[in-house]
Amino acid sequence: MGRVAVIGEHTAVTGYALAGALVLLAEDENTVRVAWSGLPDDVEVVVLTPRAARALGAARTAKLLPLTVVMPS
């Protein structure tokens, strides 16, 4: 079974660690892209903050996995 990762700003994502998600803090566009490109192979779902989703643009849907979900604004 794959893991869930969460990428985004500290205040929006840290609580997901309590549920066992891999939390990757990314406060700017560059760190979002670095976090995305460095995702472990066993990550199947990535939850993104709206800012992180905008930073990734079309890259987040360019392949089948990982599946991405964007938090509501």
Rank of each mutant, 00 (worst) to 15 (best):
E44M: 02
V69R: 12
V23K: 03
L25S: 02
A21L: 14
A58S: 14
T61C: 02
T14C: 13
L18V: 09
G57I: 08
G8H: 06
R33F: 14
A58F: 04
L64H: 02
S73L: 15
S37M: 09
A53V: 10
M1R: 12
S73G: 15
T31W: 09
T68L: 00
E9K: 11
D42A: 06
E27T: 03
P72S: 14
E29N: 13
R51A: 13
V23T: 06
V23H: 08
E29M: 07
R54L: 11
T68D: 00
A26L: 03
V34E: 15
E44C: 01
N30P: 10
G8D: 06
V32M: 13
M1I: 12
H10I: 13
V4S: 00
D42G: 06
P50D: 03
I7N: 07
I7G: 06
G38K: 11
E29D: 15
R54C: 02
A53R: 09
V47N: 02
L56I: 09
R54S: 07
N30Y: 15
P72A: 14
E9C: 07
V13F: 04
V6Y: 07
L39K: 05
L48G: 03
L18A: 08
M71T: 10
V13Y: 02
A58L: 10
V23W: 05
R33I: 14
E9A: 12
L39D: 05
V45F: 01
R51Y: 02
A55C: 11
E27Y: 06
L48Y: 00
R3C: 00
P66D: 04
T14Q: 14
A62R: 12
N30V: 15
L24T: 06
V47L: 14
L25T: 10
G15I: 10
L25D: 01
T31A: 11
